[in-house]
């Protein structure tokens, strides 16, 4: 035990933190995409595991072909738009349940991503390209600032869009489909738009991560949906605790990114504790399951059959006496 504690190195933890923040910010953009579909449209969209890697693959291959890295990110965003729109079409025009539609696109993207890259992973020639987003230790803080500015800009754009007539119609679609149609909103179109935008953000994030880590991998998006959900949920819990009633929508979106940063800092910390990296996905899934279950369990605590039964038995005993 003592040995274990002695083996932990405080300085190493500090050194790992900036990397955690940078990754958290990059994945925060992905979490904004998940927020879009999960919270705004009320759809659990599994496309993201595939579209995240598509963004990375497209980005890496374009850079390899001499494209400007920022332009490559824009194309990554567009690939996500298309992927999301495909899921939306499968769901709304072909009547496939949203979860299944997402899985179908995700699986197709696996093949597509392999085709884009030609093999399971591709590295960026870091010496031949100037990357603004990079894990290079000397430039790490600059990367953090750049990605943070991107996050704030994207949050502001999302805030604006979701406040417009069009964005309100999208939120209404997620909140009450029957009402939306009665008010003349084409809910099918809105779902397609929302899924496209969400996956666009996810693929953009995938592109950024590929630049950050210097390579793309077909499996880089595996479990992305769970990380996205974790960020969304951690963000909501923190926002509720820190800001409470004065929470406005802009801050809500900001806390999605903050949730992602916290997730990655915890990730770094747990790894530092020598938790096996292979088990991280298990741990994440457990944490997300717990948080998703909390509202339900809270309700059950207030009124459950078990408690009703206990009360009934107590009353019965009182009556017998």
């Amino acid at each position: 035990m003592l040995e274990y504690f002695a083996s932990l190195n405080g300085a190493a933890l500090l050194r790992a933190c900036p990397g955690g923040i940078a990754q958290g910010l990059i994945w925060g953009i992905m979490a904004l995409g998940v927020y879009m579909t999960f919270r705004m449209l009320d759809l659990a969209d599994l496309t993201v595991d595939g579209s995240f890697a598509t963004g990375g693959a497209a980005c890496v291959m374009l850079i390899a072909n001499g494209w400007n890295p920022e332009l490559a990110l824009l194309i990554a965003f567009l690939t996500g738009l298309v992927a999301g729109a495909v899921t939306g079409l499968l769901h709304t025009k072909l009547g496939i349940p949203a979860i299944l539609a997402g899985i179908l696109t995700q699986i197709s993207l696996y093949s597509i991503n392999l085709n884009i890259m030609g093999k399971a992973n591709q590295a960026i020639n870091v010496n031949a390209t100037v990357l603004r987003i990079t894990s290079n230790a000397n430039l790490l803080w600059r990367t953090i600032v750049i990605v943070a500015v991107c996050c704030v800009a994207l949050i502001s754009v999302l805030y604006w869009y979701l406040g417009t007539e069009h964005g309100s119609a999208l939120r209404a679609t997620g909140s009450n489909g029957a009402m939306s149609r009665a008010l003349g909103i084409n809910t099918d179109t809105m779902k397609i738009v929302g899924l496209a935008l969400g996956n666009g953000l996810v693929a953009l994030s995938g592109g950024m991560l590929s630049q950050y880590q210097g390579f793309a991998d077909v499996n880089m998006g595996r479990g992305a949906i769970v990380i996205g959900l974790a960020a969304v949920i951690i963000g909501e819990v923190l926002a509720e605790a820190i800001i409470g009633k004065r929470l406005n929508f802009w801050l809500r979106l900001l806390f999605v990114v903050i949730g992602s940063i916290v997730y990655y800092l915890v990730y770094v910390f747990v790894l530092w504790l020598k938790f096996p990296a292979n088990d991280m996905k298990l741990l994440t899934a457990i944490v997300v399951a717990i948080f998703l279950a909390v509202p339900y369990l809270q309700k059950m605590r207030k009124s459950s059959f078990h408690h009703a039964g206990v009360r009934a038995r107590a009353q019965q005993k009182g009556g017998d006496r």
């Binding site: 869009y161 406040g163 417009t164 007539e165 069009h166 964005g167 309100s168 008010l183």
Partner: peptide
């Protein structure tokens, strides 16, 4: 029944 634009909601 109106077109939803990008004007504020």
């Amino acid at each position: 029944g109106k077109t939803r634009t990008l004007r504020w909601g």
